[in-house]
Design a binder for these strands. Structure first.
Length: 409
RNA sequence: GGAGGGGUUCCCGAGUGGCCAAAGGGGGCGGACUGUAAAUCCGUUAUCAGCGAUUUCGAAGGUUCGAAUCCUUCUCCCUCCA
């Protein structure tokens, strides 16, 4: 029987680890309670977070117990790690709302029933801390000299760092202590940008409770160019299907660069490693198969098999033969709108395909718009019911963006 | 609290009275080439009913025929001093 540690290592998740031998042994012997924190800065997780979820899923498969920690308290401070500027402050209501949304999402992928896994919110303890007792008890355990040498503050020391954010590390360290006391949490995992925060926690638990706890970080999901993956012009690739449709998510992965395929297959799917290797070994246009598998598998994990299949079918239909399918982005319109005729630019605006009419004109002037398989050359064109075929109108922007207009009564 | 420097279009960054809707780069978008890839090349990148109009250079006023550029106040940021 393999150990999770070996699996994580083999798939390439692991970046840094506090005590390699001990962790390896611990994970092979006991059910280990571990945690990963997510600050509720938005109302959905995104692709970048999902790597953490994947690790938690791997861990849980091997019987370990995840604590999904919602950072309702720490989000009020804002993690300066990897940031060049201060985060925008969120209102309390937003934080609560976002926290609930994240919690719901995590419950889809992990068993968090209080038996095999837990959900916690650090606002529960952080919000009630009293300043003087806290800095007396916990603050005394930190050396400012040492904190300042931490990687996560380095950049900010040049740009400016508020005292508020400087406290983030201490809060996160305190979380670990609190979770160790409440749940017997023995490990904290996180993205590599969390390394300084994690070791601060490991140290704190040692000093306070003389217990050995461990930290482990994973690779961040980066493109081969070194930029963060999962960002598009429109924003992040969200897990929430109302923010990013399964089809869009599928397309995003279908279009990753060749160089990133292997990494994504390892980190974002559960395919056995020999299969991953076989797929990544494909060359030339063959690699498209690997991309398709990647897109399908990941969409399946996030949205389920049915949605993944729909996205796959839609993609194949559109790119192979221009047919239509029902899972590409669709907007419904009432017939009356087209009885009088709707200028094409107005339609594009309404479905959000263009941000302004000027941009729409440019698009058309540059031969980038195709409606019902016909290149649009006149931006003043007006669409009427006669342009529809069986109540459907297919719009294609550029080479890859499709949108369907569906008529209803 | 004192002294100095600065806030420019999505981002970085030029511009110090008219030639500025504002150089250059990045990013985005479209096209060509391809494999729904990368690299490369071309075009484009404030808004609006069309060569015209309207709104932009931290905010509000002012000077001027005319301001991103000058003046006043406010605001935010940075550096040095305390």
């Amino acid at each position: 029987m393999k150990n999770v540690y070996d699996v994580l290592l083999e798939r390439g998740y692991i970046e840094q680890i506090t005590h390699e031998e001990e962790v390896k042994e611990l994970l092979s012997k006991e059910r280990v309670t571990f945690y990963i924190g997510f600050d509720p800065t938005a109302d959905s997780l995104h692709l970048g977070h999902f790597i953490q979820i994947m690790v938690m899923m791997h861990m849980q498969k091997f019987g370990h117990k995840p604590i999904a920690l919602v950072g309702g308290g720490t989000a009020k401070i804002g993690d300066p790690s990897g940031r060049t500027d201060m985060r925008q402050m969120l209102s309390n209501e937003d934080l609560i709302h976002n926290g609930n949304m994240l919690r719901k999402q995590m419950e889809k992928y992990l068993v968090l029933d209080g038996e095999n896994g837990y959900v916690a919110n650090n606002a529960d303890w952080l919000d009630q801390l009293e300043y003087v007792p806290f800095i007396r008890e916990i603050g005394s355990k930190f050396s400012v000299n040492r904190m300042l040498t931490a990687e996560c503050f380095k950049q900010r020391l040049e740009k400016g760092l508020s005292f508020l954010e400087f406290n983030y590390m201490i809060m996160q360290a305190y979380d670990f202590l609190e979770l160790e006391r409440r749940f017997g949490c023995q490990m904290q995992l996180g993205g590599n940008d969390q390394w300084s925060n994690i070791i601060a926690g490991v140290d704190l638990v040692r000093r306070m409770d003389s217990k050995s706890v461990f930290g482990l970080t994973f690779k961040l999901l980066l493109t081969s160019e070194g930029t963060k993956m999962g960002k598009t012009a429109k924003g992040a690739i969200w897990i929430d299907s109302s923010k990013t449709s399964p089809y869009e998510m599928f397309q995003y992965l279908r279009n990753v660069e060749d160089a990133d395929v292997e990494n994504c297959l390892r980190l974002l799917t559960f395919l056995p490693m020999d299969e991953v290797k076989a797929l990544s070994a494909l060359e030339g246009s063959e690699i498209n198969k690997a991309k398709e598998v990647l897109a399908f598998e990941f969409t399946k994990i996030v949205h389920g098999e049915e949605e993944a299949q729909k996205a796959l079918d839609a993609a194949r239909a559109l790119f192979a033969g221009g047919g239509d399918s029902d899972s590409i982005p669709t907007t419904e319109f009432s017939k009356e709108k087209f009885e009088v005729g709707l200028p094409i630019l107005d339609l594009l605006m309404e479905i959000g395909l263009i941000p302004s009419k000027a941009e729409g004109k440019r698009l058309i002037q540059q031969n980038g718009l195709i409606v019902q398989d016909v290149l649009v050359s006149d931006f003043a064109q007006v669409l009427t019911l006669s342009d529809f075929k069986e109540d459907v109108l297919m719009i294609r922007k550029g080479k890859k963006v499709f949108h369907r207009i569906q008529l209803k009564d």
